[in-house]
Design a protein around this nucleic acid. Structure first.
Lengths: 148, 148
DNA sequence: TAGATTTAAATCGTGTGCGATTTAAATGGT
DNA sequence: ACCATTTAAATCGCACACGATTTAAATCTA
């Protein structure tokens, strides 16, 4: 058994590491984001909007890999906090466009220091972080190809 | 700015990739675990118990990096499903030991095929998966050292 | 053009995650 | 022995995630 499948345990361990690392990163972000009354998933959505303002919920979903059942309540919270506004598209009433408010746009500058602060907390070389990202992206791409 | 911090965006993107990859892996596990009425975090806890039966909640917490506020309800669900039993330690009533039931022990064999099935779904070389795990573990270790 | 199908969000229910607090048991210092 | 402190679980509240379903709008088709 251990000859035929020498690394049968690897995937357990890999998934375990991935799971723990992801939550650890979220924990690292939390104190930085709390200053701006943001959660980590809210920050992810804002990163998407700061890149391109006025995006459909569907497209935010595609970029973040989150569905409307997660995004709708999250976006409502961002709206309640005055960071975004949601408008139905006139040409297709099913679609909902999300726009940054002035406050939401201003927040981008206030959050500008976060990436730097995070980098400082990782203690890993830039080279290894890039390697890590590259491997994760390869995994995600293979998944997108295979899983639709 | 871009000279001094050439990859300021890397960490945004890396965290994003990590976040997406972790959830993708959970999604891959779900259909396999559903057959046994398990969630992914429940499976993680069972992996720990299959390795060593009769562990304190505290130790499960240390291995899984989950606290009692997550573990207590999760363990109660496992108990309700007849997979584990929880007993207070006689020598220290604060401590709670978790034991596998016969059903819980039997489940290990039923889940034996899961790692193999998962490996088949990743489409990545063993070499790269090991690289990935190595980088994630290095990150986690640095965090444990730094963050306590 | 009426009815079936597809599509985009929203809604619902369950199970995490986690900060903060609480409860109760053990321990430590005086 | 007494009381403050520490420790291990449990509890509470909030915000995700996600499968499944629903709602409503657009589109396709006979």
């Amino acid at each position: 058994m251990s000859v035929k499948f020498p690394d049968l345990n690897l995937d357990k361990q890999l998934c375990f590491s991935l799971y723990a690392a992801s939550r650890q990163v979220t924990r690292l972000y939390q104190p930085l984001l709390k200053r701006h009354d943001l959660t980590y998933p809210q920050y992810i959505v804002l990163l998407i909007l700061w890149q391109t303002d006025g995006v459909m919920v569907k497209d935010i979903g595609h970029q973040s890999q989150l569905k409307s059942n997660t995004l709708t309540p999250l976006l409502k919270r961002l709206e309640q906090n005055g960071l975004v506004s949601r408008k139905r598209a006139k040409e297709d009433e099913r679609q909902c466009y999300v726009f940054l408010t002035d406050k939401g746009k201003a927040l981008e500058n206030e959050c500008a220091c976060i990436p730097m602060e995070m980098m400082g907390q990782t203690d890993m070389s830039l080279d290894k972080l890039m390697q890590l990202k590259s491997l994760l992206d390869e995994f995600l791409q293979l998944q997108e190809k295979h899983g639709g």
